[in-house]
Design a protein around this nucleic acid. Structure first.
Lengths: 110, 110
DNA sequence: ATAATATACATAGAGTGCCGAGGTATGTCA
DNA sequence: TGACATACCTCGGCACTCTATGTATATTAT
């Protein structure tokens, strides 16, 4: 049984944060929604990613209270994070182009 | 420094083999050529992949002599391998569509 | 001649990255 | 009051790819 992982987690998270500040739980639900339920990122995946992005300076973090009274940790994309996102997007396009190029050289499947 | 791995190795290898039987070294050079040098698959990656595909019945293997007199191990895609390829291709398309969907929801980068 | 490079196969160990499983805690609704 | 959604987190395992290394032969350059 082949394992299916999400990969490109940084790209996806940075992309979401480029639109607006978000908190962890929201990132998971938004990612699922915007990908038409293709991506179901696990908390065990997301939080380490978020902490890594913070450590590298790609995001800043602040706490805020939800209308419900709950604490949330919002993440904000920094200038550095925006630059990183550009790089990641370019890498993704190159990668996807490469795969499509290889697929296009093969005969159609019966 | 972020590490760049190829991923989707099975998809790429099966795709190449769907066109013609190939031997290991050839797969590496062809993959590089057809992807416009995007993919430089390492031998330490390819050979285990090939052996795994053989173990799962996706490919058959036979030895043949090159014009130079050298021995080569050719791999041939089986019916089972072709089915696996269809699945892998479909999964790739779903995945790529998902990523593009997420990217498209973000504002353009300055 | 011989050294370097390309061809051709292979494996072991390291490193990375994602997930499963578990934990903590609060708010909402039946 | 008990279930469920929200909201955060960590640890250990596992899968995957690469680095490094090894073997061996053929070709090309010096």
């Amino acid at each position: 049984m082949k394992k299916k992982t999400i990969d490109h987690t940084d790209l996806l998270v940075l992309t979401l944060l480029s639109g607006e500040d978000m908190y962890g739980y929201q990132i998971i639900t938004e990612l699922s929604r915007r990908s038409d339920h293709t991506f179901d990122m696990k908390e065990g995946t997301l939080y380490p990613v978020l902490h890594g992005l913070w450590k590298s300076g790609a995001v800043e973090c602040y706490e805020a209270e939800a209308p419900t009274g709950r604490k949330r940790k919002y993440y904000h994309l920094t200038r550095k994070g925006r630059d990183a996102l550009k790089v990641e997007q370019e890498e993704w396009r190159t990668y996807a182009r490469g795969v499509e190029a290889v697929l296009s050289t093969a005969p159609a499947l019966g």
